[in-house]
Amino acid sequence: MTSSATRPQGVRARAAIAAKTLRTDRWWFAPLITVIGLSAWVAYATVRVFMHKWYWVEEFSYLTPFYSPCVTDRCIPEASHFGQYLPGWWIIPDAAFTLPFLLLFRLTCYYYRKAYYRSFWLSPPACAVPDGHASYSGETRFPLIVQNSHRYFFYFAVIISLINSWDAILAFNTPQGFGIGLGNLILLGNVIMLWAYTISCHSCRHIIGGRLKHFSKHPVRYRAWGYISWLNVRHMQLAWITLGTLALTDFYVMSVAAGWISDLRFIN
């Protein structure tokens, strides 16, 4: 009867163990790292999104993913590959059509859910360590029941990944013609990792093949499901890798745009 504070005495008692957890390993380490990692990233991203500058390298057509597609009327026209629709108020991110969906995609991602439920919400902080809350209803009710909409954010994420891919391709076409620099490789790497992350999504795995009852009747989908399952096992790693590549790509573009460093060019 150590942990169920809300339960009036009724059925038979649990073992009377005073300690909240008897774990002796460093169980708090993983949630701590997650808190630090995610907070740092969110802080960086917030600052960058509201900076409204250094997102476009005119010379080499580099556009950072944080500003793609650039849809406010404040955008540098060349950077707006898909037109401009919104007023350029300070509070509106320049990629206002995509960022919210990207945010929601990651927020409802099965991996990130695990990560923040454990580390931020302490529900539970680690296995066999008590929940930080007195009552619990999981994802049965509003608002958390909305997590079930992850599928739809996945569809958006696919579209956004397409846009990012398009940006990366356009970046090969500089005002001087075709060219490759370190920035291109970084953009490309980022896009590849984004695709890997998006494709390895549990919803994707389900749509591609998981929902089938008879794999044997759909050999092609079964194979695709097999590949996605292989990626899906690495979904957590990909989730962190893409946070890294996103920040890195953005930082690189920012540095080049701000003139702190110059791009390393291989061709043109």
Binding site: Y110, P124, C127, G138, E139, T140
Partner: peptide, 14 residues
């Protein structure tokens, strides 16, 4: 009560 599960994966761990 599938909805109660918040996929924090402790079951898989053990």
């Amino acid at each position: 009560g599938l909805g109660f599960c918040n996929i924090t994966k402790c079951c898989t761990e053990v």
